[in-house]
Amino acid sequence: MRWGDMDAYGHINNVQIVRMMEEARIAAFGPPRGTGLPGVEPEVGLFNEVPDGTLALVVDHKIRYVRTLEYRNVPAVVQVWIGAVKGASFDIHYVVQDPVTREDCVRASSHLAFVDADSGRVLRLTPEQKERMAPFTF
């Protein structure tokens, strides 16, 4: 959490929660291909091991704010896992917890799809991609 992430009420602004979700997603599953190497190897190279010309795009987010996440001078705890895996899309789920109390503050999910950069068409998930996701699917 950063000082600038707070809003006028002293808790982390909802817009910054989406940024935290993105950072957790990239830390867990790798940066999109072509954006450089991660500082730390992800648990599973999902986004950085797609074919050239493939984009990993967020289709939508669902966010439930359970309680306010107060500013702390330490990182929040974010649990990340893969939910439903469909033919051409998949969900990533998050629980954001207060780093001091460990109380759940946010429960959220992102629906993603791989898209062909040239045509804009959604690509079906390959058996290899589904296999890579399997250990992180709950």
Rank of each mutant, 00 (worst) to 15 (best):
V58W: 08
I92D: 10
R33I: 09
G53C: 01
R64C: 11
E131Q: 15
T54S: 01
D52F: 06
P32K: 05
F90Y: 12
H93K: 12
V18S: 12
R132M: 05
T101R: 04
L37P: 15
E128T: 15
D60N: 15
N13S: 05
G30N: 00
R67I: 02
E103K: 15
E49Q: 15
C105L: 01
G83R: 02
M20F: 10
T68N: 12
N14D: 11
I26C: 13
R102E: 08
V85F: 02
E23T: 13
R107L: 10
E43I: 11
E131K: 14
M20A: 10
P31V: 07
Y94E: 00
P38E: 06
D52Q: 10
V74K: 15
Y65I: 04
D52Y: 05
P32L: 12
S109L: 11
A113V: 11
R33A: 09
V59Y: 09
R33D: 08
H11Q: 05
R67W: 02
T126A: 05
N13R: 01
F138Y: 13
P42E: 04
P32Q: 13
P31M: 09
R64F: 13
N73S: 12
V78L: 03
H111C: 12
P51D: 14
Y65H: 09
L125K: 05
H61E: 10
A76T: 02
P99C: 07
A24L: 04
E23C: 08
A134H: 06
L37T: 15
V78M: 03
I92G: 06
N48C: 03
E103H: 12
R102M: 04
E128P: 09
P127L: 03
L69T: 04
Q129C: 06
R124M: 07
L112A: 09
Y65N: 04
R72H: 10
D116W: 05
Q129W: 12
N48M: 02
G34V: 00
T101F: 02
M20N: 07
T137K: 10
E49S: 15
G34P: 01
M21N: 06
A8N: 11
A113C: 13
R72N: 10
I26N: 13
D118C: 11
F29P: 00
A88V: 06
R121L: 00
G120P: 06
I26T: 15
L55R: 06
E41P: 07
A28M: 13
Y65D: 06
P127H: 06
V106H: 02
R33C: 03
V96P: 02
E49M: 14
E41K: 03
